[in-house]
């Protein structure tokens, strides 16, 4: 009885070791499995994951319009004060005043790329871009204005 258990133990051990060696052996014989990215050699063909978080951008359409209502939800969501929203009041044709965005200030040097602002935005006005080569010689260049000059809120976005 003891001997049977003993031999079983040895055979089980051998089987589990061979299973492990099969995995590494598979990788050794299949070089296409290699996942190393040879950056910066492959800069031109670099494929980044869709969910990669490089920096916050505000997409504008061809009429230079964005979807930001200036609600400041992103500013409140940001854990380290990266975003500062400066609002103004537009006079609409019917004479009413309406809150609109004047400047969307984004401090890239403070940003930890957590993506909470993108999640907080009710109108999907901002998103995370794939760019990651952010180095500059002057740190002033890291303070960005995300809404383009002369841009307006898109019609129908409330």
């Amino acid at each position: 009885m003891f001997l049977k258990e003993y031999i079983n133990d040895v055979l089980k051990a051998a089987k589990s070791l061979l299973t492990g060696m099969k995995v590494t052996g598979y990788y050794f014989t299949h070089r296409k499995e290699i996942i190393t990215e040879q950056y910066p050699d492959n800069r031109a063909t670099l494929q980044l994951a869709e969910r990669f978080r490089g920096e916050v951008v505000m997409p504008h359409d061809e009429n230079n319009q964005h979807a930001c209502t200036g609600c400041s939800a992103c500013e409140i969501a940001c854990p380290n004060g990266t975003i500062k929203i400066i609002n103004k009041f537009d006079i609409q044709p019917d004479g009413k005043k309406k809150k609109a965005i004047d400047t969307f200030v984004y401090h890239l040097e403070l940003c930890t790329m957590c993506g909470l602002c993108v999640e907080a935005c009710p109108t999907s006005a901002i998103k995370m871009a794939n760019t990651f080569e952010h180095s500059v010689f002057n740190r002033n260049q890291l303070t960005k204005r995300l809404n383009q000059p002369g841009s307006k809120i898109r019609e129908g976005v409330e």
Binding site: Y27, F28, I34, I35, Q38
Partner: peptide, 10 residues
Amino acid sequence: KVAAVMQIRL
């Protein structure tokens, strides 16, 4: 080299 290829590296 062997270690790298077995760990899916170069």
